[in-house]
Amino acid sequence: MWERKPVLLIVLATVAILIGTIITMVLPFAWVNTEADRIESVTPYTALQQEGRDIYIREGCNNCHTQTVRPLVPEVLRYGDYSKSGEFVYDRPFLWGSKRTGPDLARLGGKYPDAWHYKHMESPRSMVPKTNMPAYGWITKNQLDPQMIQRKMDVLGFPYTTDEIKALGDKNEMDAMVAYLQKLGSDIPWRAAATTEIVGELINPFTGVDHDTMEPWEDLYKENCAACHGDHMEGVIGPKLVGADYYDEILFQIIYTGIADGGMPSFSNLGTDKVWKLVNFIRYYGQGEGH
């Protein structure tokens, strides 16, 4: 039998291999990415976004960043709504990744303003002091090739206009990258739905604490706020906070829930305690008590 007949052994081994293959790899094509899977608000990439995606692939960003949020509590709290199959129907290839040396990017779109990304890509450590993200400022020097991008769009069958292609001539690779990052995960309106509703009365637990108590809270500010609002609250990407006169509760709400699509990320993952400390720190030093 097959112990003596290599051809028969090859045939039988192939059958053994194909059973699992057909059931778990071929059959799913009948259900995945079908009409039932589609989400109406999910749109193909624009020419600029698609080019950004190809640069993301070229630079191997997927080696350190995943693009899929799992339906687990800490994960949804950290990154946002969990990923749905229908959100990826235009992804060729998929970019879910397998390792989070850096954070997941599936819900990055709209979290920060464009300016944040330009600055962060140019000089990651000026924004996030201890990160090991390599600097990508050099891609700014590379102009886009509209003809090539048009060809890509044709192959992918994505819609575009000639004006859109023409406009690419003035753009560089960084513009494309940022456009792509801003698209990530923003096709479904999850951010508005996920905004934390604060119920009940907000009471500042640190009312009237003195200067010395507040001093160490500066580290919290440096880590979370300084990149956008400046080391001395003078405002950089975000508005200046010096002289900004908010009520404690309003400021808490802004920091805690963020401003959806306004460029201000939510900091609810810091916890209420740290957010209150930030509120008091900003209120105290922002009112001219500077140091």
């Binding site: 778990t24 790899m25 094509f29 190809d54 129907v89 992804d91």
Partner: peptide, 24 residues
């Protein structure tokens, strides 16, 4: 995959299908 040029191609599968084929 569908080639666009000599050194660029797009996967024949999209999204979740692509993921499943890739890890198979």
């Amino acid at each position: 995959a569908v080639p666009v040029s000599l050194f660029k191609s797009y996967s024949a599968y999209a999204g979740t299908n692509d993921a499943n084929v890739q890890w198979w």
